[in-house]
């Protein structure tokens, strides 16, 4: 009787701590338009001003920013992107590492995280587990030429969606 009812429950509690919490852990941004350290410093301080950013390091020679997020804090990728634009620069590419737990996905699959929806376009894997790099495909997330490849697919997924749904939807790929 004990083993029939309680062992599975006990087993579940034992298993939980071994499963990493689904969350963003870091991001990498390629920054466009930067040429001097004063400009780079403006971008780095804007990124580090975000409450959920633990550390931002912008390589002055490659203009690539690596951002570590604080654990257990809600990460808003839009604010990350906006920080770069606030400093007066734009983004060549946006990548973020997210921890998945055996997440099965398909083309146009949507997963939700902290009030935002993330829609996959043309994923190359069917199951995601552990730290996985997501490439963001929004207009402000990558350079114009790269965005034009995805623009039509993104537009199709937005048909029939409300303004609020559009504002909280990110398009990503692997």
């Amino acid at each position: 009787m004990y083993s029939f009812f309680f062992r599975p429950i006990l087993g579940l509690f034992c298993f939980l701590p071994l499963v990493a919490k689904a969350q963003f852990v870091s991001a990498t941004l390629g920054i466009s338009g930067l040429t001097c350290s004063m400009c780079s410093y403006a971008v780095q301080t804007e990124l580090e001003h975000l409450t959920f950013v633990e550390k931002a390091v912008l390589d002055l020679n490659t203009n690539i920013a690596v951002i570590q997020f604080k654990p257990d804090q809600k990460v808003n990728m839009q604010q990350v992107v906006d920080a770069v634009y606030k400093a007066g620069f734009s983004i060549a590419y946006t990548e973020a590492d997210f921890i998945f737990n055996q997440q099965a996905i398909a083309d146009q699959f949507i997963f939700s995280y902290d009030g935002f929806n993330y829609q996959f376009l043309k994923p190359t894997l069917l199951v995601l587990n552990g730290k996985t790099t997501l490439k963001f495909l929004g207009k402000k997330h990558l350079r114009k030429k790269a965005y034009s490849f995805w623009a039509r697919m993104i537009k199709e997924t937005l048909n029939g969606k409300t303004k609020a749904e559009v504002e909280t939807l990110y398009h990503v790929t692997l």
Partner: peptide, 12 residues
């Protein structure tokens, strides 16, 4: 007011 901003890698 900046009305045009065309950024590239280490260029704008």
């Amino acid at each position: 007011y900046k009305f045009l901003n065309l950024d590239g890698h280490q260029r704008h």
